[in-house]
């Protein structure tokens, strides 16, 4: 065992250097989001390119300008609002479906499980055009409903819920029925609280999905009041008056919430990612 320790130190050092190279775009983004364009260009030739400027009165200048001159805060709040609705609706709709597929012996259940698994394969980009036409036909373009309705149901989340609910004890469900306990109430007061981990995983992935989504909101929303952060970002960076530093400030602001979510829920995220790999088989 002892002979392994020196290569391991070298390995750690190599990994550390690699991680710095790997993260240089992110470090550069953060450091230069506090600088004027002149300072960004001036610093580029030295290591100062990766160091934030001295803390003074104009430290947050880019951020202040963006917040004052654009509706960016509004776009972020819009997105938070959509994410909140979709998390609640998604957990209820996909959770109920997952429970039915796991525990309730209704006709063709096994076949539905198979169909849900096959739906997980279909790339969303291939039906986005038809869904767009459909939402337009219903007169729901530029409405919150038009954006949210097609996003609630998610075969992958149904499957994730089912996998967890299958291992819940059967006798609790039977006891609940004997007690004439309202099954829907039972689902909310017993099943969901017993499955906090999967609820958290689905919620976190829903949040990341909504926050980072690009194609669907760019089709549904054209009115600036309803834009999500990602689409708002586009309208800000395509404006010629936006400086390099301001662009970096905007993309840093968009990234802060996902980093916070990642910091808080990294366990759920890693579990969710690993489960996509281990479900095979």
């Amino acid at each position: 065992m002892r002979k392994n320790s020196i290569p391991r130190v070298i390995l750690t050092v190599i990994l550390f250097v690699m991680s710095l190279f790997f993260l240089f775009p992110v470090i550069w983004m953060l450091a230069n989001s506090f600088k004027t364009d002149a300072a960004i260009t001036a610093d580029m030739n030295s290591l100062r390119a990766f160091v934030p400027p001295a803390l003074n009165g104009s430290f947050f200048e880019n951020y202040v300008t963006v917040i004052k001159n654009t509706d960016f805060i509004r776009y972020m709040l819009n997105t938070l609002f959509y994410a909140a609705i979709l998390i609640v609706a998604g957990v209820i709709v996909n959770g109920l479906a997952g429970y039915a597929l796991a525990k309730i012996k209704f006709p063709f259940r096994e076949r539905w499980v198979l169909i849900i698994m096959m739906l997980m394969i279909v790339p969303s980009e291939t039906i986005i055009t038809i869904n767009f036409l459909f939402v337009a036909k219903m007169g729901l373009l530029n409405t919150i409903f038009g954006y949210i309705l097609p996003m609630i149901v998610n075969p992958f989340n149904i499957f994730l819920f089912r996998q967890v609910f299958v291992s819940l004890p059967d006798d609790v469900w039977e006891a609940a029925q004997l007690d004439f306990c309202n099954p829907v109430k039972y689902f909310f007061t017993m099943v969901l609280p017993m499955s906090k981990t999967v609820v958290a995983t689905v919620s976190v992935f829903t949040f990341l999905g909504v926050w980072n989504d690009y194609l669907w909101p760019s089709l549904v929303f054209t009115s600036s009041d309803l834009l999500t952060a990602q689409i708002g970002l586009n309208s800000i960076t395509s404006n010629d008056n936006t400086t390099m530093g301001q662009t970096l400030a905007v993309i840093t602001m968009i990234t802060i919430p996902v980093i916070i979510i990642y910091a808080l829920f990294s366990k759920q995220i890693v579990e969710g990612v690993v489960s996509t790999g281990s479900k095979e088989g």
Binding site: A100, F106, P107, L119, V153, P155
Partner: peptide, 22 residues
Amino acid sequence: SIMGMAFFGPALVLLTLFLFLP
């Protein structure tokens, strides 16, 4: 059957509208 459809129903409606039909 009734319970199954009550639980699976909402998802089924949305799946039909926004996945099967498209």
